[in-house]
Structure formats: structure tokens, C-alpha cells
Computed example of a mutant assay.
Amino acid sequence: MRSDARSNRLRILEAAAEVLAVPGDTSLKSIARRAGVGQGTLYRHFPTRESLVLHVYWEEVEELVNAVPALLKTLCPPLALRAWLERLLALGRYAPEFADAMSEATGMLTKQCRQPYQPLLDALSG
């Protein structure tokens, strides 16, 4: 992927995370505007609203899972768990958007819908 395309993709994901985190206009148009890209650029990277919401959610889950070792290295287990649970609760801010995205794409994304949860289950059991 070209560096400008990679940069656009990252800006879109960051803008989407910010827009989805607060109530209000969560349209793709508002996300593109906030990212400083045209709607065509947004659709080249994320052809559907569902795909964008899923990517934002997956990145958040990945950050949550990757935080476990660092938290355990810097905090005692009870405080590490508390910090991790606070991050998990913050992740819940995407739950309504994620649920809407899943109901729109039920048949085609069944495997992808389960994918974000597996790292969480692995982190909790490991």
C-alpha cells in the first residue's frame, strides 16, 4: 500500500473512532470530513459502513488484548485487572454501532463477527 493511502486509512480509522465514541452524526460523510478525505477515498478503504465499524472495533480489541502484558508488568494483579476492566468498559462505547453493523451484515460476516471476541477470551484465560 502506498504511504499516502496508508496515511488516509489511518486518518479514517482515527476519525471513525472519535466520531463513533460520541452520540450524534456518525455518518460516513462526517467521518470522511473529520479525516480530511473525500467520500470516495473512504469507500475505497471501507466499502461499507459495517466494514469500517468492524475495523475500528477490531483495532480497539487488539489494543485491549495487547495491554495485558504491559499492565501486568507495571501494576500488581488487582490494579492491572482494574485498569484492564476500565479499558474494556471504554470499548463498550462502540457496542451500539457494532451491533447495528452486525445486524446489517449477519450472513456475510458471521466468522468475522466472532473474530474480535476470541482474543479477549484468550487474554482472560491466559
Results as ranks from 00 to 15, higher is better:
13 L>Y: 01
109 L>W: 10
94 Y>R: 07
91 L>M: 14
115 Q>N: 11
126 G>V: 00
41 T>R: 09
13 L>V: 10
53 V>W: 08
92 G>F: 02
3 S>V: 09
55 H>G: 08
39 Q>P: 08
91 L>W: 08
13 L>P: 04
30 S>E: 12
110 T>W: 11
70 A>V: 12
20 L>T: 01
49 R>Y: 11
38 G>W: 03
111 K>H: 09
43 Y>C: 00
3 S>H: 06
117 Y>A: 12
32 A>W: 05
124 L>W: 11
83 A>K: 11
64 L>P: 07
108 M>I: 14
42 L>W: 06
98 F>Q: 09
97 E>W: 12
33 R>L: 12
12 I>Y: 01
2 R>Q: 08
20 L>P: 06
20 L>Y: 13
24 G>C: 04
7 S>E: 14
86 E>A: 14
49 R>N: 01
68 V>S: 02
17 A>G: 13
104 E>H: 11
125 S>M: 15
96 P>Q: 01
13 L>R: 04
104 E>P: 00
12 I>P: 03
70 A>T: 13
28 L>F: 03
48 T>Q: 06
101 A>P: 09
69 P>C: 04
55 H>I: 00
21 A>F: 01
98 F>M: 15
24 G>L: 05
5 A>V: 09
103 S>C: 10
15 A>I: 06
95 A>S: 10
116 P>R: 02
14 E>Y: 01
43 Y>P: 00
68 V>M: 08
114 R>K: 07
17 A>P: 00
30 S>M: 09
87 R>Y: 04
28 L>C: 12
78 P>C: 07
52 L>H: 06
84 W>A: 03
42 L>V: 05
122 D>G: 03
40 G>R: 14
